[in-house]
Design a protein around this nucleic acid. Structure first.
Lengths: 174, 174
DNA sequence: AATGAAAAGAGTGATCT
DNA sequence: AGATCACTCTTTTCATT
């Protein structure tokens, strides 16, 4: 699945706030973080470390203007592969994610088997990618391309309410 | 479009390397960055500032384990709206991106008009989102949901080669 | 678990090449 | 433009509550 690394990600209010602030600006200093939250810098630092140790914080990434990466054109490509076996799925997943044009590979259930988020220089390169790289793969039974005109991204998704029946431990989980 | 903020994002080798390293780890110190690249810290700092000023670096974000955000289930929802007018597109785009379940809204060309990347607690909440929130919107002509089993993400997409006919300025652009 | 103080390290700007 | 140095501020550790 996504992040089921075996840990129980229990989060109190302070943890949730730290995460919210670091999603918004990962480069703010620990002091600033602590001041905003009303705790001591050392407390804040220890929380951030614990969150990292527990696998809640997975890393910190700069967000880059796609134009600066020569990727002015983006598209979504939905792909069906045949036969629908684990071997074929795994092979295609690896090859697709190794292609420099591909930003993200989603393995789907339903009508399509994969969704590829691709970003390239221009429409000519998109065309070339589809024809010279994708359609050359024998396991592909079909694909459909949609150019992306705009994207709105939530850069700091909040923690959703707990669901009844999935209670949170009351104390001592770090 | 994506990042056409009016600037010419000319990048030399050093700029590209800085961006690559900050995409991989946005929290490394300027000194570490400078050491890795073999330049002085002040040089590196000035480059990073220039990249930020020019809109190449847009921000720094922590990557969070979805399970810690109570978002164990993710899906892609492709949506068609009617009538296909600018007003309807803009309205739907705003409403969709304001929904807490929605991580990302893609405005597409082709068969579908939108793609929503959603993340929720569990399948019950996904079902509720589709039925109680999405399908209540009158402009929606149809939608199709695919559960995401896996996602492979390129966290540091590289700069693609320049295309002939889009030459880079030889000097003095910062 | 959180705090406060002290040592180690990093950010920042002036100056020079 | 890039490097060096000096100054200030931050991070990090650790003893204490």
């Amino acid at each position: 699945m996504f992040g089921m690394t075996g840990i129980i990600p229990y989060m109190d209010e302070l943890d949730s706030e730290i995460i919210r602030l670091l999603q918004t600006d990962a480069r703010q200093s620990n002091r600033e973080l602590a001041r905003t939250l009303g705790v001591a810098p050392s407390t804040c630092l220890e929380r951030v470390r614990a969150l990292t140790r527990r696998g809640v914080i997975r890393g910190y990434h700069a967000e880059i203007n796609p134009a600066a990466l020569n990727r002015g054109v983006q598209a979504m490509v939905s792909v069906q592969v045949r036969p629908l076996s684990r071997a074929v799925i795994d092979t295609f997943k690896s090859s697709a994610s190794a292609m420099p044009e591909v930003l993200s590979v989603f393995v789907l259930g339903g009508g399509d088997d994969f969704l590829l988020h691709v970003a390239v220089q221009d429409l000519d390169h998109l065309h070339a990618f589809l024809l010279d790289r994708l359609s050359k793969r024998r396991e592909i039974a079909g694909f459909r391309t949609s150019v992306i005109f705009q994207q709105v991204h939530d850069t700091a998704p909040s923690r959703l309410p707990d669901v009844p029946g999935h209670p949170q431990p009351p104390a001592g989980t770090t």
